[in-house]
Write a protein that binds this DNA or RNA. Structure first.
Lengths: 200, 200
DNA sequence: GTCTATAGAACGATAGAC
DNA sequence: GTCTATCGTTCTATAGAC
């Protein structure tokens, strides 16, 4: 028998939100952004539409909440590695080793990403909300690069933001290539390019 | 009165193909890949479905033919500039100047691209056909880099292909960022990163 | 009693079937 | 071209926490 403690309102609300986000992750990943309906998400979480709209303004914001979790939870692969100030070679080795699994794991998310980018290209309001996330991701990269410089006892490069954008662009593009023509990624492109982009 | 010369069969065929491709470009760009139908393309060109299928195996191949024209006609911006062996600074200046118009001009094509990538992610046959184009584009890049080295009287770098892939990935990613958050591209990211990627 | 999270009916838009 | 099903969103009623 489970110990059933009565939940306070806030606890219940948080629990519902979690359930909705988990359900949304599963349903979106299976049916895509366009193919998934709010009803399906609600039902998968054991609620109804009303619950979804009590927690998220609309379908777009539901996806964006998912994206936020994705960005803050894992971040793109190298971001954590950078901060420690490890040598580029060490980072490169680590990256090359985990790249295939990383790409595989990203397939579902990649589909969602492109669907939503497409959606955002047609609606300027959505585009702006997604742009906020890009800016935040860029800040995270810049922060990582800065902390890396500190950890290595170097002065942080003056073109931090430029490098952050370049890294973001490169990773986005590389994941696209990886989905379509993964052979192109063999031979250490990722690590070699990372080295060039980090070079002082 | 127009001088109406009788066309040979081959000329007529080529003219029809041209008309179909032009129509496809217009219709795809207006309705997207998914939203456009073969009927719409045929009608816009003044033919019927039969004409389309006489020239292209299916909708996918019709798009791929468009992509082929796109790749060989213009190629990505810097590819022509690279070959002359101009200094990076000169290339950079040229690129930065034309970047905004370039991005604007690419909006329609970008939408088509992402739609087709998405489509390719779901169908492995299509994915493979698209991958062929990626490989060819990569070869073009590598060729450009090689000719650049020759023009500059340098020995061509040993990691030509790596650099070619890196350039492709970077440009793909940058165009995605440009669609969603163009502000991120201000401040010379493109040229500065190009310089880093070309560096010996 | 008050407030709010959720259920579920209602509405307008849109796409697909026929 | 019409009809139907479906979906995103809005609105209202209600049950339960405070």
């Amino acid at each position: 028998m489970e110990k059933r403690v009565r939940l306070t309102r806030e606890e219940a609300k948080a629990r519902t939100r979690r359930a909705l986000l988990d359900a949304a992750a599963a349903v979106f990943s299976e049916h895509g952004f366009h193919g998934a309906s709010i009803d399906m998400v609600a039902e998968a979480a054991g609620y109804t539409k009303g619950a979804v709209y009590a927690h998220f303004a609309n379908k777009d914001e539901l996806y964006l909440a998912l994206l936020d979790e994705h960005l803050s939870a894992e971040g793109p692969p190298p971001i954590g590695l950078l901060e420690g100030g490890a040598a580029i070679d060490a980072i490169a080795a680590q990256i090359e080793e985990t790249l295939p699994q990383e790409l595989e794991r990203m397939r579902d998310w990649g589909r969602l990403t492109y669907e939503f980018v497409l959606h955002a290209m047609r609606d300027d309001g959505v585009r702006a909300r997604l742009a906020e996330r890009f800016h935040r991701a860029c800040d995270d990269y810049a922060g990582s690069l800065e902390r890396r410089a500190v950890a290595r006892g170097e002065s942080s490069p003056s073109d931090l933001r430029q490098r952050a954008v370049a890294l973001m662009a490169f990773e986005n593009g590389l994941s696209l290539l990886g989905f379509i023509a993964p052979e192109l990624l063999e031979g250490g492109v990722y690590s070699a390019t990372l080295a060039r982009l980090l070079e002082r």
